[in-house]
Amino acid sequence: MEHFVDLIGITKTFGRELILDNINLYIDKNEFVTLLGPSGCGKTTTLRIIGGFEQPTSGELRMDGENMLSVPPHKRKVNTVFQKYALFPNMNVRDNIAFSLNLKKEKTAVIDKKIKNMLRLVNLDGYEKRTTTSLSGGQQQRVAIARALISEPKLLLLDEPLGALDLKLRLDMQLELKNIQKELGITFVYVTHDQGEALSMSDTIVVMNAGKILQIGKPKDIYDEPKNAFVAKFIGESNLTDGTMLSDFAVNFAGMDFECVDKGFEPNQAIDIVIRPEDIVITSPADGKLRGVVKNVTFKGVHYEMLVDAHGFLWKIHSTVLSPEGTEVGLTIAPDLIHVMKRDESSIA
């Protein structure tokens, strides 16, 4: 199948520094793709290459099968929502949004109608005449989104657009963005370092670190089956330990043998183990596979977070049932919730 956007072997160096190392990625029509990673991982550079603001050192960028690298940014059917909004301070809200239409010499009546619809879409009805400096951060970001969407791009790039907003507003805007994307049927490429944001909005998450793509997948797959320790640590909370693969479906960690669902490793191969805090079940000491003492309890709203000292390791456990500090407990883990990952020293941050 023909992909909408193809990044093929994109490499970027600044001087002697390797920013992007052989990035291969395809994006389908109407997909919400999130590039997720810590700062400096190359996610923004990838976005800027798609937008045309950076040229890769080598590699190819195709859109609808056409080579895009020779096309300057103002001729790409791609629009960008910038991190700090980048509204034009010399124009009011209407003129900011109308900028691309004015360049195309659209009729004023057409522009006015489109702006009205667009302002309704981003919940800013009647804000046409306002100056950009009189708007709050959230409102400025909505104007930036409206400005980018009004010329009906095929692809919208968003560079940490919600980074400057407070938590409540950010959650509202996540929902709104997702709705806008569904409503308009536009492909979104979204850059963030916020794993919660990535998990709740994306169709596909691309986890990046140090200029490399570590894993591409649906949010649930990435959460449930992180490919390596870095992904596991970066997405969600986790208990991370090392272990040994004894044979297919049998693993040893924390000094105990466990049943698991993984196979295909060498006998006695050293591996990493990830267990999500909500996947460890607290039992009576007699019923547990591991035995330990609750060291610390923190109330987190929906659940308690308990740190249990067992077999030389501090296990982080999330449960709605409280086991007070000092209690002796047992711990069990279901075989399919033990995630076995190949050792990848280079990816451990």
């Binding site: 940014p73 103002h74 960008t80 910038f82 991190q83 980048a86 509204l87 900028f99 691309s100 360049l103």
Partner: peptide, 13 residues
Amino acid sequence: DKSIVEAAQDLGA
């Protein structure tokens, strides 16, 4: 702000 210039290019200028 360089991103203002980039935004203008991005929008077709």
